[in-house]
Design a protein around this nucleic acid. Sequence first.
DNA 1: GTCTATATTTGGATAGAC
DNA 2: GTCTATCCAAATATAGAC
Lengths: 207, 207
Amino acid sequence: MRSANPNFSTRERILGVAETLFARHGFAGASLRQVTAAAKVNLAAVNYHFGSKESLIEEVFRRRLDELNRHRLAALAAVQARADHTLEDVLDAFIRPALEQSMDSAGGAAFVRVLARAYAEHDERLRKFLSDNYGHVLRDFATAFARLLPQLDKEELYWRLDIVAGALTYAMADFGMIKRKSDVSEHSHREQAAQHLVRFAAAGLRA
Amino acid sequence: MRSANPNFSTRERILGVAETLFARHGFAGASLRQVTAAAKVNLAAVNYHFGSKESLIEEVFRRRLDELNRHRLAALAAVQARADHTLEDVLDAFIRPALEQSMDSAGGAAFVRVLARAYAEHDERLRKFLSDNYGHVLRDFATAFARLLPQLDKEELYWRLDIVAGALTYAMADFGMIKRKSDVSEHSHREQAAQHLVRFAAAGLRA
DNA sequence: GTCTATATTTGGATAGAC
DNA sequence: GTCTATCCAAATATAGAC
């Protein structure tokens, strides 16, 4: 049986530390020895709980991506339920859940940076894993964008979504690192950030 | 004395291959063994010519960044010489040299992806190297942007430049990988790309 | 300048005791 | 589930012949 509080179990500590170190040093750059040392668990624990480094990486994604995508799809569905929804609404459905997660949970900010890394990495296996398990989310959003931008032909839309996805990924990854004035609460900070990103991306898509 | 044609010397072959593999697998992910095998030179050649892997990485940057930054600063100076220059002009001065380099030279496309990686990596030593040697270029551009966007306070401008820099870095990195119709020449393709990026970024900065 | 051979370190994975 | 000890492969770096 597991430890009484699964948040502090060996397994969870490994996942949390791995997330931080993968964000900081990349998947190849962070070694299992660094991870287990920082998590104060034994080196062998990684293989016991996850089987391999690659499986650990996948589990780092799974742990947060399931929830993030549920929120994103729910937000998208809510937006699309209204017949008069705008480009800004769809962008908001994409951005806000990520920003919320990055500020709510302790490791959330690190995870968004891990996501950005996955985006930048061109590793075949990692891309296949993400595409197989989470590709449908991006496809749903792409369809929603296409409906709202009928004046753009396919090539144009492709270009712009590519840039927007890159911009948003980068922006959200850096979000946790931007200093904020101490008199601005977490909540309004997130609100401001989301608005900036949405306006920026919408302007780029419409230009 | 060097080989007759320095482009095919052992040293240059290493640099070219390293650029490609660092772009593809990251700095930690590409090993010196992979590099030397692909370059068809001996493993020991890297240490002979560069001293260490880290020095090789720095040399990969130096080889193209000096030229790129010269072009960028020249373009910026030309733009600023005209009193009525616009935001689009400054953005163009930043983007166009990178796109030109990415299409002109054989390894140029790979190098832009290496640049994007450096941007994403938070490795302290690499960031310090780039900031020490090339930080003045980004500072000059930031100043030019600040003059053209007086309505934005410092915090606003910081936010937006951060997003724009991320967007452009990503976009330029992916640029070489986007398929183009066969009937569109390299030149007009680059022209289109530059215009898209400039318009997108300008819209975001003004929004 | 380039090669072979090797030293040294680091990293991923496993076996077996507890 | 966790630990110690260890194996094996891979990686960086160097020594010394040519």
